[in-house]
Amino acid sequence: MSNDLEIVKCTNLKPKPEKDQIPFGRTFTDHMFIMDYETDKGWFEPRIIPYEPITLDPAAMIFHYGQTVFEGLKAYRSGDRILLFRPEKNFERLNRSSERLSIPPIDEERVMEYLKELVSLEKDWVPSTPGTSLYIRPYIIATEPNLSVAPSHTYKLMIILSPVGSYFSGGLTPVKISVEDKFTRAVKGGTGMAKTAGNYSSAYQAQAKAYKDGNADVLWLDGVEKRFIEEVGSMNIFFKINGEVVTPALNGSILQGITRMSVIELLKKWDIPVTERKVSIEELYQLSEKGLLEEAFGTGTAAVISPVGELNWQGKKIVINNHEIGELSQKLYDTITGIQTGKLEDRYEWTIAVK
């Protein structure tokens, strides 16, 4: 155990959810992690305590100016072991997001040790049913009671855990996606490359319309020309075009996904051509009409690989692979989830075992 970490164990343990009744992100474990920050002290008092509500001043700056960042990663059960998938990349990204939001950086290696202690304490909460995992949510909020429009001088870093099932109710069934050409998610120079709260709540109207029209999510276009594909609300996006895999290039408004990174690395290992570039929705439509758009899939921590069977854009339906999962999408899903759960050899040293 880390020498400076205080652990207060919960004495009134919660019942675990039934194996077939694990909704996404609604059930939380018995313990949580907290660490505080003050300008003259840095990050201090790391502690694991029973999961409980927190108290904040009504003037806490998080409520007024939205200075917050978060991450999402998972722990997987592999027999008697618990595995984390590339967690160091999540903490690297958390610090990149913090820099954009003027939040002080964390010591990534130190917080990694705290996370491992927390997951080890809650190992009985990691479900074993195929397709399930323990979702991990680290986040930082500004806590200074101050209405000045300036960065806070105090913060809280917290980590909470939630056993989860599939993000999309249909599992690996290809989803329908609505192409959004009215609202804007992010622009270059904004906060699109950061994982921060406002990026998500500003998407709610578009998502509500997509759901009403029978779609599972929203595909965002660039905020300037409304032509170039960026990402899905909960995922990065890939297209298999005439044997080549194409994904929108990181441009300052697209989140740098860890699963996205892993997919690109796998494709290169498999000698499958993969290109990061601008992709317009008009190009996709034309490729589909010519029969060259072979597969589409989203990538992200929540869904891992989510095949896309249909894009709905300005009254046009872009049907992909006859609404069936593609061979490459399936292979990527099987490989990544196999590594995450220890069923496949981890040749890339992507997993970290929790004691």
Rank of each mutant, 00 (worst) to 15 (best):
K290W: 08
Q67N: 04
S97L: 07
R347P: 09
L157D: 12
G309I: 01
S152C: 05
F168Y: 15
D222N: 10
V119Q: 10
E180C: 03
D217H: 01
M1T: 13
R185N: 07
A206Y: 00
L311H: 04
K156D: 03
N236D: 11
K278D: 15
I34C: 15
T301N: 04
R100Y: 03
V279N: 06
G214L: 05
Y167S: 14
K16T: 00
K240S: 13
P248F: 03
H64Y: 10
Q205M: 07
E345C: 07
P50L: 02
S201E: 14
I106N: 11
K331D: 12
F28T: 01
R110E: 15
S78P: 12
P46W: 02
V149C: 06
G233T: 14
R110P: 14
A208M: 12
E231C: 00
A216L: 11
P46C: 00
L221T: 06
S262A: 13
R81L: 03
I229E: 05
T173A: 08
Y37I: 09
V263E: 14
T184A: 13
A142Y: 06
P248S: 04
E324P: 05
T39F: 09
L266K: 10
W270Y: 03
F70A: 11
Q314D: 13
G342A: 08
S262T: 15
G25C: 03
S306E: 07
G198H: 04
N146S: 15
P58N: 14
M112Q: 15
K9G: 02
G300P: 07
V69K: 03
I318C: 12
R100I: 04
W220M: 13
S201V: 15
I49N: 06
G298C: 08
L219W: 00
L84M: 11
D346Y: 09
R347Y: 00
I237H: 01
S128V: 01
V187C: 14
E349P: 05
E327P: 14
C10D: 11
N12L: 11
K156V: 06
E108G: 09
G165E: 01
N251F: 02
M235K: 05
Y65L: 06
V111H: 05
I140G: 02
V354E: 09
L172I: 08
F24K: 05
G72M: 06
D57G: 04
S166V: 12
H64V: 03
I336C: 08
D30R: 13
L250E: 03
V246S: 01
D181Q: 02
T299G: 14
A197N: 04
G190P: 00
Y135A: 11
I136F: 00
N3A: 10
G66N: 10
Y114N: 03
A302I: 08
E324N: 14
L157T: 11
I7M: 03
W270F: 05
V308G: 04
W270T: 06
G300E: 12
K156N: 02
L284Q: 01
T39K: 15
L172Q: 12
